[in-house]
Amino acid sequence: MAHSSTSFVSPVGSTLVGRTVRVAFTQIATVLRAWKHRRQVRALAEFDDRMLKDIGLTRSDVDGALDESMFHNPSVLLVRSVERRSRMQRPSADRRAERPTVPSIKAVG
Protein backbone atom coordinates (compact mmCIF):
# COMPACT_ATOMS: atom_id res chain seq x y z
CA MET A 1 0.00 0.00 0.00
CA ALA A 2 1.57 3.28 -1.14
CA HIS A 3 1.17 6.19 1.15
CA SER A 4 1.63 9.69 -0.10
CA SER A 5 1.75 12.60 2.21
CA THR A 6 0.66 15.91 0.85
CA SER A 7 1.03 18.91 3.08
CA PHE A 8 -1.71 21.44 2.85
CA VAL A 9 0.36 23.96 4.81
CA SER A 10 3.49 25.20 3.08
CA PRO A 11 6.41 26.57 5.06
CA VAL A 12 6.07 30.27 5.84
CA GLY A 13 9.22 31.22 3.93
CA SER A 14 7.97 29.82 0.67
CA THR A 15 4.67 31.69 0.51
CA LEU A 16 4.30 35.14 -0.95
CA VAL A 17 3.22 36.50 2.43
CA GLY A 18 6.16 34.79 4.14
CA ARG A 19 8.66 36.23 1.67
CA THR A 20 7.11 39.68 2.00
CA VAL A 21 7.34 39.52 5.79
CA ARG A 22 10.95 38.31 5.62
CA VAL A 23 11.92 41.15 3.24
CA ALA A 24 10.12 43.71 5.43
CA PHE A 25 11.94 42.51 8.57
CA THR A 26 15.26 42.55 6.72
CA GLN A 27 14.66 46.15 5.58
CA ILE A 28 13.63 47.23 9.07
CA ALA A 29 16.73 45.59 10.55
CA THR A 30 18.92 47.36 7.96
CA VAL A 31 17.43 50.77 8.79
CA LEU A 32 17.76 50.18 12.55
CA ARG A 33 21.40 49.15 12.09
CA ALA A 34 22.04 52.30 10.02
CA TRP A 35 20.50 54.49 12.75
CA LYS A 36 22.64 52.78 15.40
CA HIS A 37 25.78 53.37 13.34
CA ARG A 38 24.72 56.98 12.71
CA ARG A 39 24.62 57.53 16.50
CA GLN A 40 28.11 56.07 16.77
CA VAL A 41 29.41 58.29 13.94
CA ARG A 42 27.86 61.33 15.67
CA ALA A 43 29.88 60.33 18.73
CA LEU A 44 33.01 60.33 16.51
CA ALA A 45 32.13 63.88 15.47
CA GLU A 46 32.75 64.89 19.09
CA PHE A 47 36.41 63.76 18.83
CA ASP A 48 39.06 66.36 18.18
CA ASP A 49 41.14 66.20 14.98
CA ARG A 50 44.09 64.52 16.70
CA MET A 51 41.90 61.70 18.02
CA LEU A 52 40.35 61.21 14.58
CA LYS A 53 43.80 61.07 13.01
CA ASP A 54 44.79 58.35 15.50
CA ILE A 55 42.06 56.12 14.10
CA GLY A 56 42.79 57.05 10.49
CA LEU A 57 39.98 59.53 9.90
CA THR A 58 39.65 63.23 9.16
CA ARG A 59 36.94 65.69 10.14
CA SER A 60 35.72 65.75 6.52
CA ASP A 61 35.38 61.93 6.53
CA VAL A 62 33.04 62.10 9.52
CA ASP A 63 31.09 65.09 8.18
CA GLY A 64 30.71 63.41 4.79
CA ALA A 65 29.43 60.22 6.38
CA LEU A 66 26.84 62.16 8.36
CA ASP A 67 25.70 63.94 5.19
CA GLU A 68 24.48 60.60 3.81
CA SER A 69 20.79 59.72 3.79
CA MET A 70 19.21 58.74 7.12
CA PHE A 71 18.57 55.27 5.72
CA HIS A 72 22.16 54.52 4.67
CA ASN A 73 24.83 53.20 6.99
CA PRO A 74 27.42 56.00 7.39
CA SER A 75 30.07 53.71 8.85
CA VAL A 76 30.54 52.07 5.44
CA LEU A 77 31.90 55.37 4.11
CA LEU A 78 34.27 55.71 7.05
CA VAL A 79 35.66 52.22 6.51
CA ARG A 80 36.20 53.02 2.83
CA SER A 81 37.99 56.27 3.72
CA VAL A 82 40.37 54.50 6.10
CA GLU A 83 41.06 51.73 3.57
CA ARG A 84 41.69 54.22 0.76
CA ARG A 85 44.03 56.28 2.92
CA SER A 86 45.96 53.22 4.10
CA ARG A 87 46.43 52.05 0.48
CA MET A 88 47.80 55.47 -0.44
CA GLN A 89 50.28 55.48 2.45
CA ARG A 90 51.71 51.99 1.93
CA PRO A 91 55.20 52.01 0.47
CA SER A 92 55.29 50.52 -2.99
CA ALA A 93 57.57 47.63 -3.90
CA ASP A 94 59.86 50.10 -5.68
CA ARG A 95 60.43 52.10 -2.52
CA ARG A 96 61.40 49.26 -0.21
CA ALA A 97 63.10 50.34 2.93
CA GLU A 98 66.81 49.87 2.58
CA ARG A 99 68.70 48.23 5.34
CA PRO A 100 70.39 50.86 7.47
CA THR A 101 74.15 50.87 7.44
CA VAL A 102 76.02 50.96 10.70
CA PRO A 103 79.34 52.81 10.66
CA SER A 104 82.28 50.61 11.50
CA ILE A 105 84.40 51.49 14.51
CA LYS A 106 88.10 50.89 14.34
CA ALA A 107 89.61 49.30 17.38
CA VAL A 108 92.23 51.40 19.08
CA GLY A 109 95.19 49.61 20.43
Rank of each mutant, 00 (worst) to 15 (best):
P91R: 14
V21D: 11
F8N: 11
V102A: 09
M1G: 12
M70C: 10
E46K: 14
S60T: 04
D54E: 08
R99Q: 14
I105D: 03
V21N: 04
P103W: 04
V9H: 02
V41D: 00
T26E: 14
S60Q: 07
T30G: 06
V9S: 02
L77C: 11
Q27L: 15
S14A: 06
L57Q: 04
I55Q: 00
V79D: 08
V102S: 03
Q40H: 08
A2H: 14
F71N: 07
W35S: 10
H72R: 15
T30E: 09
E68P: 03
V82E: 13
L66Q: 09
D63R: 04
S92D: 12
S5H: 10
T15I: 08
P74V: 08
I55G: 00
T15K: 03
D48A: 07
R87K: 07
K53I: 00
H37F: 12
L78W: 03
V31G: 05
R96L: 07
R59L: 03
L66I: 13
R90L: 13
M51L: 05
V79F: 11
F8I: 15
P91D: 09
D94V: 15
I105L: 11
A34N: 07
L52K: 00
V76W: 09
R22M: 11
S14N: 06
V62Y: 01
A93L: 13
L44P: 02
V9D: 00
L32H: 06
A93E: 11
H37V: 06
R22Q: 14
I55A: 03
L78G: 02
S69K: 10
V62S: 01
A65E: 05
R80C: 00
V21E: 12
F71T: 14
N73T: 05
L16N: 13
D48V: 10
V79R: 07
H3T: 14
S69H: 11
P74M: 09
V79P: 03
R90W: 02
K106L: 08
P100Q: 09
V9P: 02
D54V: 05
S5P: 00
R22C: 09
P91F: 09
M1F: 13
G13S: 13
R90I: 14
V102Y: 01
T101R: 08
R42T: 10
R39V: 15
S7Q: 14
V23Q: 06
V12F: 04
V9L: 02
V17N: 05
S81C: 09
L77I: 10
S86P: 01
S14G: 06
F25Q: 12
M88H: 07
H3L: 08
S75H: 01
S81R: 07
L78Y: 04
V17T: 09
R22G: 12
Q89C: 06
V76G: 02
W35L: 15
H37Q: 13
M70K: 11
A24M: 05
L57S: 04
A93H: 13
S14F: 05
A2S: 10
M88D: 14
G56F: 02
S7W: 02
D67C: 08
V62D: 01
L66M: 07
L66F: 01
E83S: 09
V17K: 00
G56H: 04
R87C: 08
S60A: 15
S14V: 05
K53V: 01
S60F: 04
V9F: 05
S86K: 08
V9W: 00
D54H: 03
F71V: 13
D54K: 12
V23C: 11
F47S: 06
A97V: 09
V79T: 09
L32S: 06
N73P: 01
R39A: 14
R90P: 03
Q40K: 07
